[in-house]
């Protein structure tokens, strides 16, 4: 009876954990994708040669936190500016002149946006670099969203773990008090504490294992269905959003949930047993 209640609560906790993990994983994937789209621009000193620009490019690419650099030549910069900002009449007045002659630039994309500031410092120290347009606000807000999500995830996991350990503890202590007489006789006959503990620890681990398996099965089947439903019903809103596939989610969630379930089961039963068995002495 109590074991069933424990399994149900453990399953509910680990289901919530699974849902939370899936949401966080998707959110983080979206942020990571956004991070790779946020770049900053590096401009060069006047009169710098193409070789020198290429050399600077090599130095930047060499850095581990850099995912990609894109060179925009002065001509490309002028073409882009013209098409975006100027009217055809105004363009004609420039003739063949390129007023952005010294505006060749690299756009630098990062693997990890939190490293942007140190990278910018490094690039500014390279000879031939005139200016770095640093989109500090974007990088900072993305980094802080990431941090908040991580802290939130850890806090929720700790709360769920605490609840589950407590519930397993109640189950085990109920089991121990029901079998008080049996345990007392066991002690009297010469059973070791290890022998007395084994069935309860196995019970705790089984509760954890079954409590982990149930939400995993549900999540495995429902994840794909929910993602499909979201994509079908909110196609416009979610266009361009790549959800993490079910396989990747389960690859992490299966060992994590089973590990948590077994760990909580073991921990909950062990802590409770230590307290409960001390109370049961041989009654003569």
């Amino acid at each position: 009876m109590f074991s069933l209640a424990s399994i149900a609560t453990m399953a509910a906790c680990l289901f919530l954990f699974g849902v939370f993990y899936a949401v966080i994983a998707n959110f983080r994937a979206m942020i990571s994708k956004a991070e790779t789209r946020v770049g900053f621009t590096v401009f060069f000193d006047e009169g710098i040669s193409d070789e020198e620009i290429a050399e600077i490019g090599e130095k930047i690419t060499y850095r581990a936190e850099v995912s990609e650099i894109v060179l925009t030549t002065a001509d490309e910069a002028w073409e882009q500016y013209k098409s975006e900002k100027l009217s055809p009449e105004l363009i004609q007045t420039f003739g063949n002149d390129n007023p952005l002659e010294n505006s060749a630039s690299y756009t630098v994309y990062l693997n990890d946006i939190s490293m942007q500031e140190s990278l910018v410092r490094y690039i500014r120290s390279i000879e031939g670099v005139r200016k770095v347009n640093n989109k500090k606000d974007v990088s900072e807000s993305l980094t802080s969203i990431n941090k908040v999500l991580t802290v939130l995830a850890i806090a929720i996991i700790i709360i769920l773990l605490g609840v589950a350990v407590f519930l397993i503890g109640i189950t085990i202590s109920t089991g121990v008090s029901i079998r008080k007489q049996e345990i007392s006789i066991m002690k009297l006959i010469g059973a070791t504490n290890f022998f007395i503990r084994i069935p309860y620890i196995v019970e705790g681990i089984l509760i954890g294992l079954i409590g982990a398996a149930i939400p995993l099965i549900i999540l495995n089947f429902s994840y794909g269905v929910i993602i499909n439903a979201l994509q079908n019903n909110f196609a416009l809103l979610l266009s361009g959003t790549d959800f993490v596939d079910s396989g990747s989610i389960m690859k992490v969630l299966i060992p994590l949930s089973i590990g948590l379930g077994v760990g909580i089961g073991f921990l909950g039963s062990n802590i409770t047993l230590g307290k409960q068995l001390k109370k049961i002495e041989v009654k003569t």
Binding site: Q181, S184, I185, K187, G190, A191, T284
Partner: peptide
């Protein structure tokens, strides 16, 4: 625990496990 294995004990109130059979109580 190992020390107690050298001692047999019998009580006034028998202290048998009610859900077990005679065989199981002794085998216990």
């Amino acid at each position: 625990a190992k020390y107690r294995r050298n001692i047999g004990i019998v009580f006034q109130d028998f202290r048998l496990l009610p859900e077990m059979t005679v065989f199981e109580n002794v085998a216990f």
